[in-house]
Design a protein around this nucleic acid. Structure first.
Lengths: 334, 334
DNA sequence: GTGAAAGCGCTAACAA
DNA sequence: TTGTTAGCGCTTTCAC
């Protein structure tokens, strides 16, 4: 049923129906109610495409994940998506899940969506974001605030807090030989962890900062090598929980007790870390909140490109579940 | 840029541009190539809404999850979504992730999408599916084939194979006292498991068929009660991996070895079951394939409501990782 | 093989 | 307060 047919059926003009529908324009409360009521009865729904064609308000937002495809990080994907989903739903907006690899551009340029949330992987994604922002409001989620640009907002997870906390807890309990697993050398977690250790009078030995991959197997390998070294670490901080799980397995394989012989801390706090024995301590990132924040910013951007976007920061914190202990007495004189 | 402006800019009529774009209608190869080339140059993209308004081909499909929100089952969500996503991408279609609770109806009735994949929870969802099918092609994913209806297809996971396999493996290894955790009494897994046990000369004692919940904690509680009984089971089949994980914990708590003292088999094969010691055997369901199959069916439905839809079945199979053993020698005379 | 024109369903000026 | 009308950008007959 079209608006014309419907309007005719209830004895008003299309314009009146439209006005009743949006509350805009002058219309009497009586007519408005009548139209709305009969809309229910006749099950009339306005055509979404026609509405968008004439430039109606924003109704669909696209979400795209850049960067490496999810791994154990499925949790990340689920949580973030759910956060975005719920926030959009509260605003009566739909979520278009764009395929990885730049599909979002198609939806933006064809005006199928009127906003974009981009989950950034690496640096190059910022260029993509700026390009998109030229066409529609865009919010990029990353680990760093983005230079303000018209139509471009950003939400970033400030990874430093959690890293600092881990450094503090480990050093406080007396650890001095501490390892770090995973992450690029420019990674914020590593950087912050290293400097926090230094501040605490400890330090991160170069041979204990391992650039591992992202799987459990990677974590196992890396930890196994470390434990085979002359002076193995008494604690390890893994940039991803998967690596931490691998480290746990490696320790077990060598007959080490966790946390008595080796303290382990992960990062991201995926559900899996609660299943091990002992449950692993991990740095929590509230992905759902990140998604919600992104939508929040996006809607601040909507009024127009004039408004200067303000990057929103979310912080991380250590959740200690008991895989951290004091270091064991040295087996070799150091 | 509109088609009019673009057409004018390259010296042809809008109609020609449209023809070049779709390959339909009479158009010379030369013009076609020229238009396409200049489209790239001038970065013209047709307006998606206008295209849909005039009733163009299908370009967006909605996906909605009914039923209980994901738990440990996040994996289910991720995999299924990914399967749907990839299949749609291959057909150059977009994915609208509808909010749980019926949001999909809005997108269908407003013609924002031209197809729907519904992931059913309980029975009532079939009515919703039929209602949707009245407006747009719809495929429902469930555990049972759906009565053919115009415009309505179905993909179902045939749960029987896996259940039968579990029954066979357990009885073959000599188990006679076997427990079942979770699931409604009408659940296909339970039904099939019971009848397969019977065929093998074993049986499922009523007191060992426990209607547990869906969390790890639920599994722990239920298993704990069973193990406290006078003649505890030597093997347990859990309807969900979460329950199996709980059962494992309960066994551990009582000092039982797995699988020597208690064999455990889960269902769904979520990644978590590989992390335990020993890794749990589980019945695998290929959710990604289910999603892809749904899209496949959906596109068979598109030509029109005439075509009779044929329910697609996917089967389950046991993945044995080593949490199944022969039963321990009886501690009490039976 | 190509162009002109009608119309998809809606909103927003402008009239009444 | 309500109705009339002119497009929004596209596809698709129908002429040429």
């Amino acid at each position: 049923m079209t608006i014309k047919e419907f309007a005719h059926a209830i004895g008003v003009s299309p314009a009146t129906v439209s006005r009743a529908l949006h509350g805009r324009g002058r219309i009497s409360e009586t007519t408005r109610e009548m139209v709305l009521r009969r809309m229910e009865e006749l099950a009339y729904t306005p055509n979404h495409n026609a509405q968008r064609l004439v430039g109606a308000r924003t109704s669909i937002v696209a979400l795209e994940f850049r960067g490496t495809p999810p791994l154990l990080t499925d949790f990340y994907f689920t949580q973030l998506t759910q956060g975005v989903q719920e926030a959009l739903q509260a605003r009566d907006c739909g979520l278009l899940l764009a395929a990885p690899g730049g599909a979002v551009w198609r939806w933006v340029s064809s005006r199928a969506v009127d906003g974009v949330v981009l989950v950034g992987g690496e640096g190059a994604d910022y260029d993509a974001a700026r390009r998109i922002a030229g066409r529609a409001p865009c919010v990029i989620i990353g680990h760093h605030p983005v230079n303000a640009a018209p139509n471009l907002g950003s939400v970033f997870v400030d990874l430093r807090g959690g890293a600092r906390q881990v450094a503090r807890v480990l050093t406080d309990r007396g650890h001095r030989r501490i390892a770090f697993l995973g992450g690029q050398s420019a990674d914020a977690v590593l950087t912050e962890f290293r400097s926090a250790l230094r501040q605490a009078g400890a330090s991160l030995s170069p041979e204990l900062a391992v650039r591992a991959g992202r799987t459990i197997e990677d974590g196992f390998q890396a930890m196994d090598v470390l434990l085979a070294g002359p002076v193995p670490p008494t604690a390890v901080f893994a940039r991803r929980d998967a690596l931490a799980l691998g480290a746990l397995a490696a320790a077990r394989r060598r007959g080490l007790r966790v946390p008595e012989d080796l303290s382990i801390v992960g990062h991201d706090d995926v559900p899996q870390v609660r299943l091990t024995e002992p449950p692993l301590s991990s740095v929590r990132v509230d992905c759902s909140a990140v998604g919600a924040a992104a939508v929040e910013i996006l809607f601040q951007l909507l009024p127009g490109p004039e408004r200067p976007p303000c990057p929103a920061a979310l912080h991380t914190e250590l959740v200690d579940r008991g895989s951290i202990s004091i270091p064991p007495p040295p087996r070799h004189p150091v």
